[in-house]
């Protein structure tokens, strides 16, 4: 086990070095006009992180993201459990949810903007829309796959529906639900940042859009870099927990 952990660490290290080399080569080809080299980006990111203005944008994005994630997870669980318990609804709604999942939600953004107005609530709604479907789909399939004997035990004990969900269905489905939350996490982040790119005066997405109009290559590179690092670090942590849940460590 420890040996394979070490192997994985070495693999990740090789990968990171590979990405940096790729980045440097791309920079050498593209040139100063449109890109920055890794160390220039690190230096600028470091400088950026010492300004108060930047942290204001970060906290704005994080607030919107946290709210969107909470809504996505809460609503996703509710939809997932409802559809799993009521079989006809589940059978009918699942393909519709899958279809919704595959449409470019970004084009729905104007509708959300018109409905919620400019500002925080539109961003949150847009983030939540991205995250809610995977959480619902994973929950639905996890609850459906619960071992029949567990459900029978619950019936024998005459558990009311609420207790059935709390003591049997939910605990049995936790590993799969967590996978759904992990996928939902990434999509919610993407949704929130995208939301900020269009209709916001603050946040990381706004910073990115603003940098394009100002042709500020340093800022574009730094914000893109930070978003990627944040997403991969959190996702890796979630993956490790996910793995433990699935393999009963």
């Amino acid at each position: 086990m420890i040996q394979s952990d070490r192997r994985q660490l070495i693999n990740v290290a090789i990968l990171i070095v590979g990405i940096l080399v790729f980045w440097e080569i791309a920079y050498l080809i593209v040139g100063e006009l449109a890109m920055r080299s890794p160390h220039e980006t690190f230096a600028f990111t470091w400088k950026l992180m010492q300004t108060d203005l930047f942290w204001g944008h970060v906290s704005e994005t994080m607030q919107a993201f946290a709210m969107a994630l909470a809504i996505a997870v809460g609503l996703g669980l509710l939809i997932g459990f409802t559809l799993a318990i009521h079989k006809l609804s589940g059978d009918a709604m699942e393909p519709m949810l899958v279809a919704l999942y595959s449409i470019p939600k970004i084009t729905l953004y104007p509708i959300i903007l018109l409905a919620f107005g400019l500002g925080m609530s539109a961003k949150v709604a847009f983030g939540a829309i991205h995250g809610v479907i995977p959480v619902a789909l994973f929950t639905l399939n996890a609850v459906r796959a619960t071992k029949p004997i567990l459900i029978k035990t619950g019936r024998v004990l005459k558990l009311p529906p609420a207790a059935m969900v709390r003591t049997i269905l939910f605990p049995a489905a936790v590993p799969e639900i967590f996978t759904g939350i992990r996928v939902g996490f990434s999509l919610t982040l993407i949704g929130t940042v995208l939301g900020e790119m269009f209709a916001s005066q603050r946040g990381m997405g706004y910073l990115l859009m603003n940098a394009i109009s100002l042709y500020n290559v340093d800022l574009i590179m730094a914000v893109t870099f930070l978003l990627c690092v944040f997403a991969s670090v959190v996702n890796t942590a979630l993956l490790i927990i996910d793995h433990r849940l699935h393999h009963g460590a």
Partner: peptide
């Protein structure tokens, strides 16, 4: 981790 990265952020 690929799908955790906001690819649209590369568009600019």
């Amino acid at each position: 981790t690929y799908y955790a990265i906001p690819v649209f952020a590369f568009y600019p």
